[in-house]
């Protein structure tokens, strides 16, 4: 799956004429033959226009509340700043490994006496959702898509609660054991695509 921003005219031309485009067409034919057209429909470039809020997110479930906005997380589900992947605390401050807040330049943020400012909690985004809404949540299944030249993992924050963060009925998504997607988050891998 491609980032729609990369689906420029040149790229579409390349897809039509290059070996990569040829392979993509062959792949599509084979998958169709295997009865997997529905799956192809999900991962073709045309579907990119259906992404909402951020690359890779299909359907209508809202983002999980996140200290800095876009719901980017790390491997443990902790919040990261979307623009650069820096770890942030629950207040949205960039922090070091000890949770101490940092300046934009990466130095310790200090008070007028020169002492480091007090650290704040850093909570898993999905766990914070559980506390905020008084429900049980789980980081269940995931799906991977290619976004901005690297593989992105779309991670559902799932709950047994029948409703989702939007306020209406939740969807199954990639959740296990009958749980529904309460809100969505993502993790950017270092795998190029």
């Amino acid at each position: 799956m491609r980032d729609p921003k990369r689906s420029s005219g040149l790229e579409r031309l390349a897809e039509d004429t290059s070996r990569r485009g040829f392979l993509a067409r062959v792949s599509g034919v084979l998958m169709s033959a295997a009865g997997a057209q529905a799956a192809v429909g999900v991962v073709t470039a045309d579907a990119a226009a259906t992404y909402t809020n951020f690359c890779g997110h299909t359907y209508t479930t809202g983002n999980c509340p996140h200290p800095t906005g876009l719901p980017r997380i790390d491997r443990q589900g902790m919040p990261l700043r979307a623009k650069d992947g820096h770890r942030v605390d629950d207040l949205g401050r960039p922090v070091d490994t000890k949770g101490r807040p940092l300046t934009p330049a990466g130095r310790l943020l200090r008070d007028a006496d020169g002492e480091p400012l007090a650290p704040a909690p850093r909570t898993q985004v999905c766990a914070a959702v559980a506390q905020r809404y008084g429900i049980r949540t789980y980081n269940d299944g995931a799906w991977y898509r290619c976004c901005g030249g690297q593989v992105r993992k779309l991670v559902d924050c799932c709950s047994p609660h029948p409703k989702r963060i939007n306020g209406d009925a939740g969807l199954g998504g990639y959740c296990y054991k009958g749980r529904k997607v309460f809100c969505v988050q993502y993790r950017d891998t270092n795998v190029p695509c």
Binding site: T52, C55, T68, L70
Partner: peptide, 11 residues
């Protein structure tokens, strides 16, 4: 902390 718009540009 600086907050982004909550959605990715272009989406």
């Amino acid at each position: 902390g600086s907050r982004d718009s909550g959605f990715q540009r272009g989406y």
